[in-house]
Amino acid sequence: MRHPLGNKLPLLALLLAIAAASLTLSLMIGSVDIAPLELWKLLWRDDGSTHYRIIHELRLPRSLSAFGVGGVLALAGLLMQALLRNPLADPYILGVSGGAAVAVLGAMLLGLPFAWQAPMAFGGALASILLLFSLAHSGNWNTTRLLLTGVVLAAGWSALISFVLSLSPPVQLPGMLFWLMGDLSDALNPALPLAVLGSGLLLALWLAPALNLALLGTARAAALGVRIRRLHVFIYLLASLLTAAAVSIAGAIGFIGLIAPHMLRLMTGSDHRILVPGSVLLGGSLLVLADTAARTLIAPMQLPVGVLTALFGVPLFLFLLNRGTVGRQS
């Protein structure tokens, strides 16, 4: 008898190919276009040309960062959806990025140096998570309450963001808005997002069988021998740390965490041993493509990538909803 995962492996191979293709595309196009053959040579050999520097100092770091951040966002979304057993759960909807945004905008308003932004974002995201946790977790774990508390917290952060924006001097507004919309133009050190992605992926793969059981509900998972409380806390912390890391690197980029897991569920069902690596590959590819579009569509101007993920994400999500998967699963 064939293992049910056996016929899903080709999909992972396909996603791997898509990831490679989107990374290649992102290296080829931009202010100067570089042909595939030249790109291949330049990847390995420094010929002292400007093209070499464009690839190695600008495009490659940025694309790898985009892939790392996209993968992290998709993974965080997938974990939150498993935790809350709700296809709408996503760290952004739960107000985590709102908390980060308030902290960063506050730092900008106070005129703190640029280097403070990432730590402030991380701290803001964690503070929002702790607040959500303490507000929603008094006594027992109730996913509806957690989701509702998160949505209300997000609304509160959004009001605070408007408040800070209205206080800010006009010179600072463009920078603030770019950060709010999510932007990868400063993310030129891919080591951090890729390291976060790698460790998150390993942990999530290790958890995957238990995540499958968690989908059956708390009582059923416990009856089948899962330490469900411990698992819930662990998923929650992992998803939160991943989100905090992504927000501190690239600002508030929405929809990747919602869209990537959904497209995959549509294609393969709900086994996390496929969903985890698949979401990472798909989320990474989507953000690489979106970022490539963001820096080329109206060149030489650059769009914040969060605008594009939302512009594409909204119709895509509505399409998936119409196909009935999201609605049926909730």
């Binding site: 049910p4 057993r85 059956l216 059923r220 089948l224 021998g225 086994d271 699963q329």
Partner: peptide, 29 residues
Amino acid sequence: ALWRGLLFQDGLGGFPGTVFETVLAGRHP
């Protein structure tokens, strides 16, 4: 979970997979 199994009264929610995957989940312990 190896000693006792439980048949629940209330239905199963969440993201359902295929029938075979769900039955197979019973082997988890």
